[in-house]
Design a protein around this nucleic acid. Structure first.
Length: 356
DNA sequence: CACCCGTGGAG
DNA sequence: TCTCCAAGGGT
């Protein structure tokens, strides 16, 4: 075995994280195997998302849909509602499609190879390799952001990302052992998450400290080298929170693709780079006495949104293209965070009754 | 390859 | 306050 792998696995046996979806080294020795459904579900949720944020969603999904067939049979709206707040909603749409495919075309069993997994919706290079290694003991090179950081530091690779990806992949492949490839992958990620961190890495505790080229150069934080990213533009718009006297809220469903695709929303204007908000009231979904309730700011990946929030209590509930949802069941709606923020701005108590 | 796609916590 | 960015994938 590659000496890096041997050193890392020894470190992992002693210092690995305990995670809800993980089968640790000790349990594996007792014969326990990772459930591919659990591995897949966790990997999809963990895409660009912190372990801390994922834990509660993972437990909720697993309790509600214990097997992939259950998820395949679920209503898409319920899956989107359960995913609400986690972000990157295309993941939820692909999660559902993938579950349906596995249930209908693979007899409820996930493919056990990289190629078979990668053919499924929502599974790319990283996730296919991770599931193949962790659930099926395939020695695939698992490269995520943690691994990129560890490897670029270990070998002082100063080519900027993403151009360095092929080199990082090759280096990772060379290190990956035939035995325990899943533990090796998780060990690399644990190392990146707990020791080889983006800032102020704890090199003194690193199993690679004697061999790390970046540490030898006395500047591990210089790696990985990344190109500067573009500034985040500002977009503006207005949101209209309409309430009936008996406590129902006007909601719509966004189109299935694109930003917040398939999620619920209150009616809004378009989100553009315009700076005037004077014609907002004219863009309202119906004529009423709209009261300005202030502005909210929400930061998306590639732009910042400033929404003027308007509120009205309308006795007339006939509106085209929407539904009046009871405030008491807002917790069951697929409302993304930005919409919860807008609703709370107009109706401060809207979600308080739902919190437990 | 470049761009789109959320959210919240850490420093 | 502000910047960074977390187990990336789709187009």
């Amino acid at each position: 075995m590659d000496h890096f792998a041997a050193e890392l696995l020894t470190w992992y046996d002693r210092h690995h994280r305990e995670l809800p979806w993980r089968v640790g080294p000790a349990d594996k020795r007792s014969g326990e195997r990772p459930d591919p459904y659990h591995v897949w579900l966790s990997e999809i949720m963990l895409q660009q998302t912190t372990v801390q944020a994922v834990k509660a969603y993972y437990e909720k999904f697993l309790a509600r849909w214990p097997r992939v067939e259950n998820l395949a049979a679920a209503a898409t709206d319920e899956v989107m509602a359960a995913w609400a707040g986690l972000g990157y909603y295309a993941r939820a749409r692909n999660l559902k499609k993938c579950a349906e495919t596995v249930a209908a075309e693979h007899g409820g069993k996930f493919p056990d190879t990289f190629d078979g997994l990668k053919a499924l919706p929502g599974i790319g290079d990283y996730t296919a390799a991770a599931i193949a290694a962790i659930a099926f003991d395939r020695p695939e090179a698992v490269v995520d952001g943690n691994v990129e950081r560890v490897v670029t530091r270990l070998f002082a690779i100063d080519t900027p990302l993403p151009a360095a990806k092929p080199v990082v992949r090759d280096r990772t492949a060379s290190m990956t052992p035939e035995g325990r490839p899943g533990d090796f992958a998780q060990a690399m990620m644990d190392l990146g998450a707990t020791i080889c961190t983006p800032r102020r890495p704890t090199c003194a505790l690193c199993p690679f400290r004697a061999e790390c080229a970046a540490l030898a150069k006395d500047d591990p934080e210089r790696f990985p080298v990344k190109l500067p990213k573009a500034a985040r533009p500002v977009r503006r718009g207005a949101a209209f929170v309409a309430e009936t006297p008996d406590g129902r809220l006007l909601l719509r469903t966004r189109k299935a693709s694109g930003l917040l695709g398939g999620m619920a929303e209150v009616p809004t204007t378009g989100w553009t780079s315009r700076s005037d908000g004077e014609t907002d009231a004219e863009a309202a979904p119906f004529v009423a006495r709209w009261a300005f309730r202030g502005e909210i700011v929400h930061v998306f990946t590639h732009f910042e949104l400033r929404l003027s929030v308007w509120h009205t209590v309308a006795s007339e509930s006939r509106v085209d293209g929407g539904r009046w949802a009871p405030l008491t069941t807002l917790g069951e709606e697929a409302l993304p965070s930005v919409m919860k923020k807008a609703i709370s701005q107009a109706i401060p108590d809207a979600f308080k009754a739902l919190r437990k």
